[in-house]
Design a protein around this nucleic acid. Structure first.
Lengths: 140, 140
DNA sequence: AGAAATTTGTCCGTATGTATC
DNA sequence: AGATACATACGGACAAATTTC
């Protein structure tokens, strides 16, 4: 199919469906989601779209993914935040501006900023952590 | 989001930022750059734009890409000298690791890290603040 | 212990539609 | 009109971690 993104994109619809299954217990916490290949078949979507949907779940803290294993459902929709994701690059968070950031952005300390964190690894070790702070105006 | 390519197109600005990280050792030679998806998130740009930026790096001999693996930084004996971003201010500080950083680097919270802070401006306004954290000693 | 299958990670190329400069 | 950019979506291929046989 082409790409008419009327209303809701497909990956969001799929993410919503998977979210329902997790939160309703159809996919119990700690269990594996169906493999990407299975979801591809079930939703008749491309793998990229499925992976996008799963990324939404990860971003919402509803799932974690392990290379070669699969994607696990997570119990609490919140609170785990960043902890399990240290092996994954780029996460978006909203944080309070510290004094320095407040001064730079010319905002009040404690105001909310968007932070994106990227981890660069070399030889199994964390090489550097990059944190990008931005105002959260027109972001999606 | 609109498309204000004031002066410099976005993909060139991103290429410039990545170039800086490579040439400054933030992304050491031989290591992998963050994946396209990670860069997409960090720079809040579309995949096409990120790929364009990486293409610039390849073209400049600063990176090579391997199918299925990723994009590697390449050691460049030359100094950049040429390219842009005079509106970039970087400074170096030593800071204590917060809980997240400590976990990522596998060090004790409160340990000292090097932080380099870069402020990028657009039209007199602070657009984003980038903080790069690295270990003090065993740097390459 | 080793090979094969499974599964996720990443990149490649392409395509459509929308919007702005 | 053309260049830039975003968001979405497809299909294919190779790489790497894990599991299974």
């Amino acid at each position: 199919m082409p790409t008419p993104h009327y209303g809701q994109p497909r990956y969001r619809a799929i993410a919503g469906e998977l979210r329902r299954r997790i939160e309703s217990g159809i996919i119990p916490p700690g269990s594996l989601l169906p493999a990407e290949s299975a979801l591809t078949a079930e939703f008749a979507a491309s793998r990229g779209t499925i992976r996008q949907a799963i990324a939404v779940l990860r971003d919402d803290g509803l799932a974690t993914t392990e290379h070669g294993r699969g994607t696990y459902a997570i119990a609490r929709p919140y609170a785990s935040a960043l902890i399990e994701n240290s092996n994954l690059n780029a996460r978006r968070r909203e944080v309070a501006a510290d004094a320095d950031l407040a001064k730079l952005f010319d905002i009040a300390p404690g105001s909310i900023l968007v932070m994106r964190e990227t981890v660069t690894c070399a030889q199994d070790k964390v090489e550097s952590v990059v944190r990008v702070y931005q105002l959260l105006n027109g972001d999606r």
